[in-house]
Each structure stands twice: as C-alpha cells, then as structure tokens.
C-alpha cells in the first residue's frame, strides 16, 4: 500500500513535571483541609473520608472550604495551603 507523509495535528504540549509535597509517614494530629468543589454530595464524600481518617489514623482537626462553583478555579488555595497539612479535593459528578 502506498504511504503518505502527513503532519500530526496534536502539536506540542506545554508543561513539565512538578514535584509533589513530601508525604508524611502518619496522619496523626495532622490538619485535614477539605476543598469542596460544590458538586452535589462532594462535601458528603470528602467529609466522610476525612472523618474516617480521624477515626482510623488519628488525623484532625478538619476544616472545610467551598468553591462557589465547580467550573472556576479556587481563589482560596493559599489559605487552604497555609491552614492544612493534607487536603482532600475532588473531580467528578
């Protein structure tokens, strides 16, 4: 079969790899932040997972922030980072 040279329509992707925060060995006594994206029941799932982390791993206290809508970036990131040791957030319906 004959072959044809074509250009890929994907182009390049910007970016690179960023380091993640170093994980702690234990959650005991660590402040859990919840960033609720305001999707229905997001707070229920994230909140229950946080409760379970308190029960099972001795984490706590828990603090909650809520984005006004799921489709915009959070404006409270700096505050969340300053006030939490670990943060739970979500993406889904």
């Amino acid at each position: 079969m004959s072959r044809l040279s074509v250009l890929s329509p994907l182009g390049t992707a910007a970016g690179g790899i960023k380091p993640l925060a170093r994980r702690r060995g234990s959650l005991r006594g660590l402040r859990i932040g919840i960033l609720d994206n305001s999707k229905p029941n997001a707070e229920v799932l994230l909140g229950r997972v946080a409760e379970l982390l308190v029960e099972r791993a001795g984490a706590g206290p828990i603090a909650l922030w809520r984005k006004p809508g799921a489709s915009h970036p959070a404006t409270v990131i700096d505050e969340v980072v300053a006030s939490s040791d670990v943060v739970l957030t979500g993406s889904a319906d």
Partner: peptide
C-alpha cells in the same frame, strides 16, 4: 479510605518523562 490513607502517607513513584508530541511528519496510508 484505605486508598486515601495510602496516598497521603506514601510518596508516589516518580513519573516517566512526559511524552511530548510535536508538529511532526507521520507516515500514513496513502
């Protein structure tokens, strides 16, 4: 919750270098 606990207490494996496609020539059927 077990998966969350693991994710928060164990460093993930470092990622492989990101694959970056470019506007490059590709061989396709004629």
């Amino acid at each position: 919750v077990d998966r969350v606990l693991e994710a928060l207490t164990r460093d993930p494996s470092p990622p492989l270098a990101a694959s970056v496609a470019t506007v490059c020539a590709v061989a396709a059927p004629g």
